[in-house]
Structure formats: structure tokens, C-alpha cells
């Protein structure tokens, strides 16, 4: 039944839009469509971004893995390499710090009227993504393949049961959030 839904193209575009509307609504309500909140996180003064991300990760991790056990969902692990994730991640980080929004929150910021997000962030992202697409053939053979590990999950890497990793990671995140609240962050 679910596959019948997945293959309906028009329905999927509508679902994408609906999920996006809820996502944008939540991001705005969380305050993370604001430059001040995101920069506050990067300056380690305001931990809203980390609190939202980690509570989403815990909730999502338990639910999605349960749904996978019930055969209602499939995982979509992104393949990766050191050259791709570390170097790309650091380049992304420079942009994150300069712009003060990320690709999802820049769209949310645009929705709440931030002109720096629209004419700076979104325009810049389109240019940056275009440059990447243009030079991709040069990067593809070497640097993006350096330290390649593919579609690897933490349980596969550690050769243990996925639920063991889920329990440990969730417990660690909840403990971290608890400590953050206790210490007034």
C-alpha cells in the first residue's frame, strides 16, 4: 500500500509541500529561522539549535528504526568518505558562520522577511551549488573518493546490534541535554 503512495508523483509533490510547511512552521516557532539564534549557537552562547537538533534526532531515531522493523520504512544512508564529509563539512561550516543560516533555516528566514537570507543566502547558495555542479567531474575522481567508506552505519562500523547503538546514543543525548539544562545553558 505504501509503495502505491510513493510512486504517485503528483501526490508526492503535495506531500513534500505539506511536510515542508510543517517543517518551516516548527523551525520558525523554534526561533532557528533567526540569525541571532543560530549565531548565538555558533558562539556557544545560546544552545537552542543543539537542543532542537538533538531532540529531533532522538525522536526520529527511535521512531524510524521501529518503523523499519515493522517494514513500514526503509533507511536511506548517505554514502560518504573522509574527503567528502570532512572537507565538505568544514567548507559548509565556513558558510554557516558567515551567513548565520543553514539551507533549511535560510528558507525559513526568507519566509519571515529576512532580506539578507533572500538576496544573500539563497542567491549565494544557488551560485555555490552551481559552481559545485560545474567542477564536480574534477573532484569526483580524487578528493571525493579519499578515505571512501560508502553507505556505512555506526552499528555496521562497530559490528553490534543497531538497537544497542540506538539505546546508547539516545541515553547519551538525553544525559547531555539534561546536563545542559542543569547548568543553565
Amino acid at each position: 500500500m505504501l509503495e502505491a503512495i510513493h510512486t504517485k508523483k503528483g501526490l508526492q509533490l503535495c506531500l513534500g509541500l505539506l511536510i515542508g510547511i510543517v517543517f518551516g512552521f516548527l523551525l520558525q516557532k523554534g526561533g532557528v529561522t533567526r540569525y541571532d539564534v543560530i549565531i548565538g549557537q555558533l558562539l556557544l552562547q545560546d544552545f537552542t539549535v543543539v537542543k532542537i537538533m538533538l531532540s529531533a534526532v532522538v525522536t526520529g531515531m527511535i521512531g524510524v528504526h521501529l518503523l523499519k522493523s515493522l517494514k513500514m520504512a526503509r533507511l536511506h544512508l548517505k554514502s560518504g568518505s573522509l574527503g567528502q564529509n570532512v572537507i565538505g563539512g568544514l567548507i559548509f561550516g565556513i558558510g554557516f558562520g558567515l551567513l548565520g543560516y543553514c539551507p533549511g533555516t535560510v528558507a525559513g528566514a526568507a519566509g519571515q522577511g529576512a532580506l539578507d537570507a533572500i538576496f544573500g543566502g539563497i542567491v549565494g547558495m544557488l551560485i555555490g551549488a552551481g559552481i559545485f555542479a560545474a567542477i564536480f567531474p574534477k573532484l569526483q575522481k580524487r578528493i571525493l573518493k579519499t578515505g571512501y567508506f560508502g553507505e556505512l552505519s555506526l552499528p555496521q562500523l562497530l559490528k553490534v546490534n543497531a538497537w544497542l547503538v540506538i539505546m546508547i546514543v539516545c541515553a547519551a543525548i538525553v544525559a547531555l541535554l539534561f546536563i545542559m539544562e542543569k547548568s543553565g545553558l
Binding site: M53, A56, V57, G60, M61, V64, L75, H76, L77, K78, S79, G80, S81, Q84, N85, I87, G88, G89, L90, I91, F92, G93, I94, G95, F96, G97, L98, L99, G100, C102, P103, G104, T105, V106, G120, G121, V123, G124, M125, L126, I127, G128, A129, G130, I131, F132, A133, F136, L139, L144, F149, E151, L152, S153, L154, P155, L157, A162, V165, I166
Partner: peptide, 30 residues
Amino acid sequence: GGIFLGFGARWAGGCTSGHGISGMLQLAVS
């Protein structure tokens, strides 16, 4: 910043939602 962000996101294969939330919840090493 936007140029670095768009370029870096494609280089890294995802962003704060694709990697940071969706990928982390799937326990992907990448």
C-alpha cells in the same frame, strides 16, 4: 556565506537537515 554553504553542502553530500537530522537519526557514519 551562501556560496560557501551551497558549495559545501553539495561537497559534503547534505546539510544540517539531510546530514544533521535525517542522517544522524539513521546512524550514518557519513
